[in-house]
């Protein structure tokens, strides 16, 4: 510190203050910093924008309409002006046999889809991975991917034709074996196997791409090392490939469980008929019939909300369990 009486420069206190002030100015407010960040990275945000808009327009904005689940909604009064009626629709819903049947069917169909449909793409991917002949591998992959790119309407048409009692290939083959024609699509007990089978045929190949990508990411030296250690192809598949793609399998399982109530309902609508409602009617088709065909929008909204809440709880639970036991999770 200067003791010179003529010293006119800044005092230590002033210097400290100035330094702090300069630092404060340099750091800027949160808003300024966000602004700087956006200015720097705007290209990335621009790329994100369409998705955000899509989410807002098609998923968040419609949530405004969810309130009609608790209202006596009339299209003439509009969403805002319809009177509140509390949980009345939910009461009706849980006393509605058709709804309860739809919930039961949804769970059963989903369970079968998960049980038989989930492992199938994994098995396919593992099998493709073992195929050495590249030409065979590529043609086989193309063939199993193909159904995914065909419209559900056409798939349903193919299924209906294949199971037709008069000209369908299935009944024709049964006829050769001396078995009488079966009216598959009108029999409730045949609906679920046909639906689950169709789903697997349509999607298993395409879903296997995810697992093939995961398998491609496994370091080749793991296999080389195992070869030197004396592992057979079978052992390498179970001891290296499967554990290596386990995180992917778990993530896919979580997503699948979250969507367990989202049975592909356009396929159900295309395949079911009143004769098979008993086993085929699911929550989404129930909502469709009540809401769009019956005009009971409020009641259908309540059913839809119930569906969404259950799905939300399921995905949260699956994620939490997975995070705890396998260190793998969606978030």
């Amino acid at each position: 510190m200067s003791t010179d009486p003529d010293f006119t420069g800044p005092t230590t206190e002033n210097l400290v203050f100035d330094a702090a002030e300069a630092q404060r100015r340099r750091r800027g407010s949160t808003l300024v910093r966000i602004g700087d960040h956006l200015k720097r990275e705007w290209q990335l945000y621009a790329m994100l924008l369409p998705t955000i808009l899509w989410l807002i327009i098609f998923l968040y904005k419609p949530m405004y309409g969810l309130q009609i689940a608790f209202k006596d909604y009339s299209i003439f009064r509009g969403v805002a002006d319809s009177p509140w009626i509390g949980l009345e629709h939910f009461n009706t819903l849980f006393n509605n046999d058709q709804f309860l049947r739809a919930v039961k069917n949804t769970v059963i169909i989903s369970f079968y889809s998960l049980l038989f449909g989930f492992p199938m793409p994994i098995l396919l991917a593992l099998m493709f991975n073992e195929v050495l002949n590249q030409t065979f591998k590529k043609s086989a992959q193309t063939i199993v991917y193909l159904p995914h790119f065909i419209s559900s309407v056409i798939i349903a048409g193919i299924v209906i034709t294949a199971f037709s009692p008069s000209a369908g290939i299935v009944n024709t083959v049964l006829g050769w074996l001396g078995i009488d024609s079966i009216y598959f699509l009108t029999k409730p007990e045949w609906f679920r196997p046909i639906f689950v089978g169709t789903g697997i045929w349509q999607e298993a190949g395409f879903q296997s791409i995810v697992y093939l990508a995961a398998i491609a990411g496994v370091s080749p030296t793991l296999y080389e090392s195992a070869v030197v250690d004396g592992a057979s192809r079978w052992q390498m598949m179970w001891k290296i490939t499967v554990p290596s793609i386990m995180p992917t399998i778990i993530i896919m399982l979580i997503i699948r469980i979250g969507n367990i109530l989202e049975v592909s309902f356009e396929m159900i609508i295309l395949l079911y008929q009143p004769a098979t409602y008993e086993t085929a009617d699911v929550v989404n088709t129930f909502i469709y019939r009540q809401g769009l065909q019956g005009g009971q929008y409020d009641f259908a909204a309540a059913a839809g909300l119930f569906n969404a809440v259950v799905a939300f709880v399921l995905v949260m639970t699956a994620n939490t369990i997975s995070k705890r036991y396998s260190r793998t999770s969606l978030w």
Partner: peptide, 17 residues
């Protein structure tokens, strides 16, 4: 390879994660 009775150490370790 398994019947040659050799063991190999790789550059990137090749450990099973």
């Amino acid at each position: 390879p398994k019947d040659r009775d050799v063991a190999m150490v790789f550059q990137n370790y090749a450990l099973y994660p």
